[in-house]
């Protein structure tokens, strides 16, 4: 974008957090909540890292510390090898907060132009980029000039997403990105996250929706009560060694199913379960929405 970003260190991890602690204190300085307790994270370039955890587990606090919005009680954070307060590092980050956090009196177009101003983008470049992104999130046309305060939560979320991508970020931080979205919006966000990962961007995605994380993340960290309980690549984490193998068979004639079952028993299987192949409910729902009216009936 600007020359200032060009001098920032390149390569290495997009985000490195080491032994982060965060204790919130009351007015008198007494410890009130220990939100994060010794979290260490690393998000490599092009990685889609999911942070999973129930409400109050410290996901948003960790993300805010990573972005320099909260000061860690102890521990350190580096964004692209720089402190998170460094403007050169933050210029390479796009952030979607948990509740979008938009000015209600601005329109989506003005919101993006405002954000572009914060990134120091020239007005002409910003206008073109804003128009492009509004189209990408489905808010072009009349919606682009309505005030955000009149929007539903889902529409506001789309504006927030467009803002997070405005500076063409190398690290995209998404805090509960599908919150408030309908199934179509959720699928679009999931597709977007996959596309961002495919483009080589690093994505840090926080969510308490397990299926969402499973669908798009290459690696996950599970936070419980401020601590990381598990971390790693998804296939490795979900593998259950010694508990059998699952076959996903297609092209087998129905009359051969019995033979296949018998063969498995003959090979020593103690139990074999079979059920008709199904598609996920989300796919079924979306297929109904996308089908023409008469076909659906």
């Amino acid at each position: 974008m600007d020359s200032e970003t060009d001098t920032a260190p390149r390569g290495g991890a997009a985000l490195e957090a080491e032994n982060l602690h965060k204790t919130f204190r009351d007015f008198w300085g007494r410890a009130r909540t220990e939100a994060v307790r010794g979290v260490s994270l690393r998000a490599g370039s092009g990685e889609v890292l999911g942070i999973l955890g129930p409400n109050g587990s410290g996901k948003s606090t960790t993300i805010k510390m990573a972005l320099g919005l909260l000061k860690p009680t102890s521990g350190s954070v580096r964004l692209f090898g720089l402190p998170p307060s460094d403007a050169r590092a933050k210029a390479r980050v796009g952030y979607l907060p948990e509740l979008s956090h938009l000015h209600p009196f601005l329109t989506p177009r003005e919101t993006l132009l405002y954000a572009a101003g914060l990134f120091g983008m020239p007005r002409r470049t910003a206008g073109a980029r804003a128009a492009d992104l509004l189209k990408r999130v489905g808010l072009d046309g009349a919606a682009a000039d309505r005030r955000v305060g009149e929007f539903s939560k889902g529409m506001a979320r789309r504006v927030g997403l467009a803002r997070a991508l405005l500076n063409d970020p190398e690290l995209v931080v998404l805090d509960e990105p599908t919150s408030g979205l309908d199934p179509v919006g959720r699928r679009e966000v999931k597709d977007l996250v996959k596309a961002l990962g495919g483009e080589g961007r690093t994505v840090l995605l926080s969510s308490h929706l397990l299926s969402e994380v499973q669908d798009v993340c290459t690696r996950v960290a599970v936070l419980v009560r401020g601590r990381i309980r598990a971390e790693g690549a998804l296939p490795g984490l979900l593998e259950t060694p010694g508990e059998g193998v699952r076959f996903d068979v297609s092209g087998l004639a129905p009359e051969k199913v019995g033979e296949a079952r018998a063969a498995l028993f003959a090979l020593g299987a103690s139990s074999v379960e079979e059920s008709p192949r199904t598609i996920p409910l989300e796919d079924f729902f979306l297929s109904l929405l996308r089908a023409p009216e008469d076909a659906a009936q």
């Binding site: 200032e4 970003t5 805010k64 972005l67 320099g68 919005l69 403007a87 050169r88 933050k90 210029a91 980050v93 952030y95 907060p97 509740l99 956090h101 938009l102 000015h103 954000a115 914060l118 990134f119 120091g120 803002r163 500076n167 931080v173």
Partner: peptide
């Protein structure tokens, strides 16, 4: 939270 959203950028 609009201040947080703004300050997540390079301001």
């Amino acid at each position: 939270g609009t201040a947080a959203a703004a300050l997540a950028g390079p301001v």
